[in-house]
Computed example of a mutant assay.
Amino acid sequence: MGILSRTSYVIRSKINAILNRSEDPGETLDYSYEKMRDELQQVKQGIADLTTQKKRLEIQKRRLEENVERHNEQAREAVNQDRDDLARQALEKKQSKMNQIEDLETQIANLQETQDSLVDKKNQLQNRIEEFRTKKETMKARYDAAEASTRVSEAMSGVGDEMADVGRALERAEDRTDEMEARSAAMDELADTGAFDDALSDKDSIDRELESGRSSREVDTELETLKADMGKGSPPETESDDGETADVESSDVDVADEDVEAELEELRNEDDA
């Protein structure tokens, strides 16, 4: 087999495979049925045309027969008038018309025979079409049932093209959902650690440590000032006449320490709240 022959064979094979996959048996059967009906209609039209031609010949035959009868009367009348010459002419015309009638009868007989044959073939074709129609409807019903059963089986097993697409779509949705959930959890974790604040700030870690120390010292200073304003600060030192410092009585110092601790505990509780 040459290259061109092989190429042609492969192309025809692929085209045939494509047609087989795209062919709908129901549509094919319906199309075949319509083609057969068209053929039957053509046969009926042929029979009608043939019958028309036969009728025309029969009409022409009747007219010739009428002429034959008229020529007979002409010949009789000519004989009565002793006009043999006219009688002969009438009889000659009669003979000519009879010959034409004979030819017409032969043609009519042939047409009748052809018509009878076509009618028989038409009846046979019509019977075949009716049988084909019954088989067609039966085959279509079987095909539809088989197709429905196949679709149900594919849907239940999940091997059909549509179900496979649904399965892939579900897998993609699950993967996307997992990705979004993981991303959301990561964002929450970064927010809790302050990573977003750090990312939005121009300060580095040293600046933040120093600022935290300054804030702590400012709080301590403000706390001491508050204690001093409320008279709950450290025990004041007094100087004696000779310039030496004298301590406040120990009992007063103990009371002041207890009050400071209580106030400090209240402040801590307020800050925690």
Rank of each mutant, 00 (worst) to 15 (best):
E27F: 09
Q115M: 09
P25S: 10
Q124R: 01
S250W: 04
Q107Y: 04
V166A: 10
E105N: 12
E162R: 00
Q112K: 12
T52P: 00
K14W: 04
Q45L: 13
I11N: 09
S250G: 03
I108E: 05
V119R: 06
G213F: 14
E27R: 13
T52M: 10
D116N: 15
I3R: 14
I206Q: 00
I47F: 02
K93F: 15
L226Y: 11
D188N: 07
K227F: 11
D220N: 02
E69S: 07
I108M: 13
T225V: 06
T221S: 04
A90R: 01
L104R: 10
S201T: 08
I108D: 01
S149P: 01
V152T: 06
D254N: 10
A246V: 11
D259M: 10
E270D: 13
L264H: 06
D116T: 14
A164I: 08
K121G: 00
L190P: 00
G243L: 11
I11M: 05
T221K: 03
K203E: 12
T150W: 15
D30W: 11
F196E: 08
T7R: 10
L86C: 05
I101D: 13
K14T: 02
D257R: 13
M1D: 11
A185H: 02
A78C: 14
Q124E: 01
R76G: 01
H71L: 06
A169M: 02
E69W: 07
Q41F: 07
E34L: 07
K203G: 07
M36Q: 09
L111I: 03
E270P: 03
R183D: 12
R12D: 13
L210E: 11
Q53C: 05
D198Q: 09
A145R: 12
E65V: 15
T7D: 11
A155V: 02
R151P: 14
H71C: 13
S157Y: 03
T138C: 03
I59N: 09
G233W: 03
K55A: 15
A145G: 12
N80K: 07
L264K: 12
P25Q: 05
L57A: 06
E105C: 11
E218Q: 01
E162M: 02
A173C: 00
P236M: 04
V43Q: 09
P235C: 05
I3F: 15
D204I: 06
R133Q: 06
T193A: 10
I15H: 00
K97W: 09
R62Q: 04
A87H: 04
